[in-house]
Amino acid sequence: MQTYYLIRHCEATGQAADAPLTPQGQKQALLLADFFKSIPVDRIISSPFRRAYDTVFPLSTMYDCPIELENQLQERILSTSSLNDWRSDLKATFSDLNLRFPGGESSREAMKRTSSVLHEAFLHPARHTVLVTHGNAMALLLKSIDSNFGYPDWEQLRNPDIYRLVKNSDGLTCERLPFNTQTD
């Protein structure tokens, strides 16, 4: 049996690759490490974006486990052009997986990219792996596992959020874990 923890990064100051965590996000990262105190961690794989790396850094330090940076976990680019109603456009990409906006990535492409990391992790001997990514990338990875995961589920994601995936001889199970994101 192998267990994977799919984590959406903590609260950040923005969407740029180098956007740091907010002070609240820094507190959340410490709470996240505390959440994992009784959960074994053998391997940590993170998006190279600063907010993802900073989210898992306290956990990495606690377990003395190096963070492997993986470009395939970076956030999905919906478009490089300004969109009039990006939320409506994003919603449409959950129905039409091949829909692609200028300079962007289709949902199908993002699902293939992010799920490749999970499939590589299936082949690794680590039994407890943490994968840190971003909201839309996480939602599409979860959609690649469960085709019913959709836009309303993406809307419900929090910063941070945690899903546990368990792979055994019966297949793959997925569940959202309760995590209190409030630090005050």
Rank of each mutant, 00 (worst) to 15 (best):
I39T: 07
P40Y: 06
V41E: 01
R43C: 12
R43P: 00
R43A: 06
I45V: 13
I45L: 08
S46C: 03
F49P: 00
R50E: 10
R51S: 04
R51Q: 03
A52E: 00
A52N: 03
Y53Q: 08
Y53F: 13
Y53A: 01
Y53I: 11
D54T: 00
D54E: 10
T55W: 01
T55Y: 00
T55M: 03
T55P: 00
V56C: 02
F57C: 10
F57K: 15
F57L: 13
P58F: 01
L59Y: 04
S60C: 09
M62I: 11
Y63G: 08
D64I: 02
D64H: 15
C65N: 14
C65P: 02
I67Y: 03
E68N: 09
Q72T: 12
L73C: 04
R76M: 13
S81D: 15
S82M: 11
L83A: 07
N84H: 12
D85W: 15
W86M: 09
D89N: 13
L90N: 06
L90R: 01
K91L: 05
T93A: 07
F94W: 06
S95E: 13
D96C: 08
L97V: 09
N98Q: 10
L99Y: 08
R100E: 14
F101V: 05
G104K: 03
S106Y: 03
E109R: 02
A110E: 02
A110C: 11
K112R: 14
K112E: 14
R113H: 04
R113K: 06
T114K: 03
S115Y: 08
V117N: 00
L118T: 02
H119K: 13
E120L: 10
A121Y: 07
A121K: 08
F122C: 10
F122W: 15
F122N: 09
H124M: 12
A126Y: 11
R127F: 09
H128N: 08
T129M: 05
T129G: 03
T129C: 09
V130S: 00
V132M: 03
H134I: 03
H134Y: 02
G135W: 05
N136P: 02
A137C: 03
A137W: 01
M138W: 02
M138Y: 00
L140A: 01
L141M: 05
K143C: 02
I145C: 08
I145P: 05
S147C: 12
F149W: 15
F149Y: 15
G150I: 06
G150W: 04
Y151L: 06
Y151H: 09
P152Y: 08
P152I: 10
D153N: 10
W154G: 00
E155N: 09
E155A: 15
Q156I: 04
L157T: 04
L157Q: 05
N159C: 13
N159F: 07
P160V: 04
D161H: 00
Y163F: 15
Y163P: 01
R164T: 03
L165P: 00
L165H: 02
V166G: 02
K167Y: 11
K167C: 04
N168V: 10
N168K: 05
D170E: 12
T173E: 07
C174M: 13
C174Y: 09
